[in-house]
Simulated assay, not measured.
Amino acid sequence: MNVSLGTPPFPIMAIADTGSDLLWTQCKPCEDCYTQEDPLFDPKASSTYKDVSCSSSQCSEFGTRASCSTDKTCSYSIAYGDRSHSKGNVAADTLTLGSTNSRPVQLKNVIIGCGHNDAGNFNKKTSGIVGLGGGAVSLVSQLGDSIDGKFSYCLVPFTSEKDLASKINFGTNAIVWGKGVVSTPLIKKSPETFYYLTLESISVGSKKIQFPGINSGTSEGNIIIDSGTTLTMLPTEFYSQLEEAVASQIEAERQEDPQGVLSLCYSATADLKAPVITMHFDGADVKLDFSNSFVQLSEELVCFAFRGSDDLSIYGNLSQMNFLVGYDTVSQKVSFKPADCAKM
């Protein structure tokens, strides 16, 4: 998503991430950073930038992820599920968001991270991350009552024309309504950063596979929805059943993923007739398109975009593309509506 930081406003392109809280960008001087195409944000060039002190309440909201620098300013260190990380200064500055009525909205004293040491799986077209999680320092929490706990996004598929940015809305514009909308409850669990949903089962064509623990009632909030994770991750045993069901309905020769990340792959040139995958959340059946359930890794290879993991179960962004996904943290629900995100 596109935002601007500082005064005068400096544009940055960042990844909208519902699985983390902090809004950070790479900053000058960058001691050890990944390569980005856009210029780096220079805190010295912003008249409204200020480092946050160690004794401030803003610093204490970071908990164990904050530490005190020698000059008594607050530093942060954050690590992501894919082992990417960012380290730098906790600061406050003015954030400018584009608006539907074309007049930009300025938000003063937004807590940000000024990253001086960042590495991992970051795209060189992006300068950082906008954390949209449920924690205290996330942009959603900082916007507070002004957005009434509501935001939505529509993720443009990777196969679309390259320069199309995905749209994000806050407040009344974020309400997802109309034909085809389904909603599922948001479950409050720890850590508060994550948005937990309840996945009851997954259908492969007409074959329904039940998520572990559904009958024993231990499954409430068994999966998080995360716009910053690519694949959908499921418990290993459950994933094996899912993969077996998908493979049994595809008449094509299996191929190997040379990276060894995905286990169900086929030749991209084969005329794949894949079964329809439906995610059965509590109260909401979300029917996936082929581009949600399979990802093209190269000109030769297409793979099932789910994998087994016994850590956290995650509903990743490939599964969410071409859906208008609305979060309402006041009514405690997430809504899905099929959409052509490139046209929005």
Rank of each mutant, 00 (worst) to 15 (best):
A252M: 13
I129K: 15
E251N: 15
S298K: 07
N222M: 06
L143D: 11
I15Q: 12
G180D: 09
G228M: 06
C30W: 00
I314Q: 07
D289I: 07
T218A: 11
W177T: 15
V286M: 04
E192G: 12
L139N: 08
T7C: 10
T94G: 02
T126Q: 12
S84W: 12
G221M: 02
F122P: 05
T269L: 15
G135L: 03
F304T: 01
P275H: 09
P212T: 02
R65H: 14
I187R: 07
I224F: 01
N123H: 15
V90Y: 00
L231W: 15
L23E: 02
G213Q: 01
P212W: 09
F294Y: 11
C265R: 11
C154A: 07
A16G: 15
D257T: 01
L107H: 06
S141T: 01
G115W: 03
C74Y: 00
A245W: 12
G205T: 12
I111M: 05
K273E: 10
D21T: 03
A339W: 13
V204N: 06
K343R: 13
S293K: 00
D38H: 15
N109K: 06
N222T: 04
A66N: 11
W24S: 12
I314F: 12
F306D: 00
I250M: 03
T126D: 15
P191C: 02
S152Y: 09
L318Y: 10
G19K: 08
V130N: 09
V330N: 11
T159G: 06
K125M: 14
S227V: 09
V140W: 13
Q142W: 01
T73A: 04
K150A: 12
E237S: 13
G326C: 04
